[in-house]
C-alpha cells in the first residue's frame, strides 16, 4: 500500500470504486461540511473536497477534508496549482498528512477569471501562481512520498504518504493529445484518475480504447466521471459551454420530455427532471463501469449531495466494502 487509504484499498481489491464530491461552503460555519459528510458517508469510498472550485473562496480543501475525516468520511483533498507556489503546496501537504489525510487530487484549477462562471463576483483580479502544473505537482507528491524528499531536494524525516490522483478530460480539445496527457500524469506518478463528466459514452469508449492500448489502465485506476443532471437546461449548458463535455441529443430530449410532462407546474417540472436525471445517471454509471479499463466511478451531484445515497443504491453499488484500519 502506498498510502493505505480506503480508496486505495477498494481499488486494490478490484471492487469498482465509488467517489463523490463535497463542495465546502463560502462560510466559516463547519456545519455545512458536517451535514454533507453525513449525507455521503457510507455511500462512497471517498469524497473529493474541492479546492476553491470555480475560483471562489470557500473553506480550504484541507480544513474541510479534516472536518469530513472527523465525521468518518474519507476525503480526497483537492489541490490546485492556481493559488500556491511549491513552498505553500508542500507545507500544506505535510500538514494534511499530519492531520491524517491520505488522498490528494492534483488539478490545474479554474482560472481566477472564472468566478463561478460569472454568477459570483469572485476575484478575477487576483494574481495566479502556477509555479508548477498538475504533472509537476503529481511528481512532487510522488517524490515526497517515495523518495522522502522535498522538490528542492531537502530530506523529509516523516514523508507524507498520499494516494495521488489527477484529473483527466478525455474528450477536450486537442482530442488527439488527451491520451498523451493522461500518460504524462501517470508517468509523473498518478495512482488514480478521475475524469470529467461523461455523457457521450461512444466518444469516451473510443478514447478509453486508446488508453487500454497504451496499457495505462494497468498503471493507474481510472474512475469515470458522472455529473448528475438536474434539468434539460443544465445538460444544454454543459453541452455548449463546458470544455470536453458533449451531451448526446437523445439525453437532452429525454429531459425535455420529462419537463414537458409537468405541464405548467414549476415544482413538478423540477421533480420530474430530477427523477429523469437520476435515471440517466444510473444508466451512465452502468455504461461507464462496463467500459474496458475502468476501475470505478466519480459521481458529482453538485450542490445535491443528498442524491448520492439513492443513486448508489439504485445502481447496485451499495453497500460499499470496508477494510480494517482504513
Amino acid at each position: 500500500m502506498k498510502s493505505g487509504s480506503n480508496l486505495e484499498q477498494v481499488i486494490s481489491s478490484g471492487v469498482p470504486a465509488v467517489t463523490a464530491e463535497l463542495g465546502p461552503p463560502m462560510s466559516a460555519d463547519p456545519h455545512e461540511v458536517i451535514k454533507k459528510a453525513q449525507q455521503l458517508k457510507g455511500f462512497c469510498d471517498a469524497a473529493n473536497i474541492t479546492d476553491c472550485q470555480t475560483a471562489v473562496v470557500r473553506i480550504s480543501s484541507i480544513a474541510a477534508a479534516a472536518i469530513a475525516f472527523q465525521q468518518g468520511l474519507e476525503p480526497v483533498m483537492q489541490m490546485t496549482c492556481r493559488d500556491r507556489n511549491r513552498i505553500a503546496m508542500q507545507a500544506d501537504l505535510l500538514g494534511a498528512a499530519a492531520l491524517g489525510l491520505k488522498n490528494c487530487l492534483c488539478l490545474a484549477g479554474d482560472h481566477q477569471k472564472f468566478s463561478a462562471a460569472g454568477r459570483l463576483k469572485g476575484h478575477p483580479g487576483a494574481k495566479n501562481v502556477y509555479d508548477v502544473d498538475t504533472c509537476q505537482l503529481v511528481g512532487i507528491l510522488k517524490k515526497m512520498r517515495d523518495e522522502g524528499k522535498q522538490e528542492g531536494g531537502d530530506p523529509i524525516e516523516v514523508a507524507p504518504k498520499f494516494f495521488i490522483g489527477a484529473s483527466w478530460t478525455p474528450m477536450a480539445d486537442p482530442v488527439d493529445f488527451r491520451p498523451i496527457n493522461l500518460m504524462k500524469k501517470v508517468n509523473a506518478g498518478a495512482d488514480f484518475i478521475q475524469t470529467q463528466g461523461i455523457y457521450d459514452i461512444e466518444g469516451f469508449r473510443s478514447q478509453m480504447a486508446k488508453i487500454v492500448n497504451m496499457g495505462l489502465h494497468e498503471r493507474t485506476a481510472i474512475l469515470g466521471g458522472i455529473i448528475v443532471p438536474k434539468s434539460a437546461m443544465m445538460l444544454k449548458y454543459m453541452d455548449s459551454s463546458v470544455a470536453g463535455v458533449s451531451v448526446p441529443k437523445s439525453l437532452i430530449d429525454r429531459m425535455n420530455k420529462a419537463k414537458a410532462a409537468a405541464g405548467e407546474d414549476k415544482k413538478k417540472m423540477r421533480e420530474l427532471q430530477e427523477q429523469e436525471g437520476i435515471k440517466i445517471t444510473i444508466e451512465l454509471i452502468h455504461q461507464v463501469l462496463e467500459t474496458p479499463g475502468i476501475k470505478g466511478v466519480h459521481i458529482q451531484a453538485i450542490e445535491w449531495e443528498s442524491a448520492i445515497e439513492g443513486i448508489v443504491k439504485e445502481a447496485g453499488l451499495y453497500p460499499r466494502p470496508t477494510f480494517p484500519g482504513a
Partner: peptide, 10 residues
C-alpha cells in the same frame, strides 16, 4: 502550464 492543456480547452 508546461505539460499540456488543462481541461478548460473549448
Amino acid at each position: 502550464l508546461m505539460n499540456g492543456p488543462c481541461g478548460g480547452t473549448n
